[in-house]
């Protein structure tokens, strides 16, 4: 059973890293600026999922706070970038 959980954890880490690579491709390729912002937002989400996975792997609750912080900063940065793209300034 331990082996099963380990294999599942390795598999999930592989999938999340692959997803981050795909996001990175879109981030580099994206024809418009809003594509890049969307890819960056998804990259934040994937990073949060990776932190959760690390938390399960090492059975430590510290990673939960990482995930919370990553989710918070991801939201703020995406909103700021979207507003900047729309108006040209963030705080009006």
């Amino acid at each position: 059973m331990k082996l099963l959980v380990e294999i599942a954890l390795y598999f999930s880490q592989f999938c999340i890293v692959l997803a981050m690579l795909l996001c990175m491709l879109r981030l580099l390729k994206g024809p418009t600026a809003q594509d890049r912002v969307l890819a960056l937002d998804t990259l934040w989400i994937c990073a949060m999922l990776f932190a959760l996975l690390l938390g399960i792997s090492f059975a430590s609750l510290v990673y939960f706070e990482w995930a919370m912080l990553i989710a918070l900063t991801g939201f703020v940065s995406s909103v700021a970038l979207a507003k900047f793209l729309m108006r040209g300034e963030i705080i009006e």
Partner: peptide, 9 residues
Amino acid sequence: TLIGTLGLL
């Protein structure tokens, strides 16, 4: 998650 980002790409 992988399928979602594949859609993004």
